[in-house]
């Protein structure tokens, strides 16, 4: 049901939604951003476990990334990206995509956890090392908040709600990411995101950071009521105007009119 929308969204949205009124979009809150169309998963349970990764890779990845991960016109090389990058892209559902997109969006993962680890192993066999999948422990949220403000808030927003970058790219909201995915993104730097290797952030600091990011998604941080998508002052201003026009001016009109007696 989402697939046809996904194809038309990039073309339709600028025209239609802007005409309808961009303010309305603010009121609606974060609408689902266009997810990439998902290719049909191929259940082939008969394959032996060892070759599972290789087979999935050939079916789903090789057309863009090349048979040995050397890359092509359609997709970058996978040699040396590291298990963390592969696991991040697959477990967040950003890969595979059926056609070239400028920025793959988060969605339900296409592969099961076993298939993902098989694929991770297979891509690792292309060689080149790269960051391992981090093991995340629970950390200190105070230090995590500090690190988040210094390194992550500029793009993802201090409230973790995400923000726009140039050329139609955006830094996504962080509320759906698991702790491992957050740590992977920090180490790998998917897309336009800078990577934060060990000499910039230690493992302990990454643990602190992920603990804080995980906490950001909880409603406990919104004791003041509906957070309005954590979109900031303009969403608040819109609500204030709605309240003034719908509640207060209507009240004034009711009071100022003669009662029909």
């Amino acid at each position: 049901m989402r697939r046809p929308r996904a194809v038309t969204l990039p073309a339709l949205y600028p025209r239609r939604a802007l005409v309808v009124g961009s303010v309305l979009a603010l009121a609606l809150g974060p609408v689902a951003l266009a997810p990439a169309p998902d290719p049909t998963p191929t259940p082939s349970a008969t394959t032996p476990a060892g070759d599972r990764g290789a087979q999935l890779y050939l079916e789903q990845c090789a057309s863009c990334h090349g048979v040995r991960g050397q890359g092509s016109q359609q997709g970058p090389s996978l040699v040396g990206v590291g298990p963390a990058a592969v696991d991040f892209q697959l477990s967040t559902g950003r890969m595979p995509v059926s056609r070239e997109v400028s920025q793959a969006r988060r969605r339900e993962p296409v592969f099961s956890a076993d298939d993902i680890s098989a694929l991770v192993d297979h891509v690792a066999s292309f060689g080149g090392g790269g960051p391992r999948i981090p093991r995340v422990a629970s950390g200190d949220v105070v230090s995590g908040r500090d690190l988040f403000a210094a390194n992550c808030a500029p793009c993802h927003g201090a409230a973790g709600s995400g923000a726009v970058l140039t050329n139609g790219w955006s830094a996504p909201p962080l509320y759906d990411a698991s702790a491992t995915q957050v740590a992977e993104a920090v180490r790998v730097g998917p897309g336009l995101m800078p990577a934060f290797p060990g000499q910039v952030l230690t493992d302990q600091q990454v643990d602190d950071l992920t603990s804080y990011v995980r906490r950001l998604r909880t409603e406990r941080l919104d004791p003041g009521g509906n957070p309005l998508g954590r979109l900031g002052p303009l969403a608040e201003g819109l609500l204030a105007w709605l309240a003034v026009l719908v509640l207060l001016v209507a009240g004034v009109r009711w009071l100022g009119r003669r009662a029909a007696e």
């Binding site: 793009c155 923000a163 800078p194």
Partner: peptide, 21 residues
């Protein structure tokens, strides 16, 4: 404003306040 939005690979930085790049 602090220009802290670094877009990896493009060599560009972006300002969060008024989107200067």
């Amino acid at each position: 404003c602090p220009v802290r939005l670094y877009l990896k690979g493009t060599g560009r930085v972006l300002c969060p306040c008024h989107q200067s790049s």
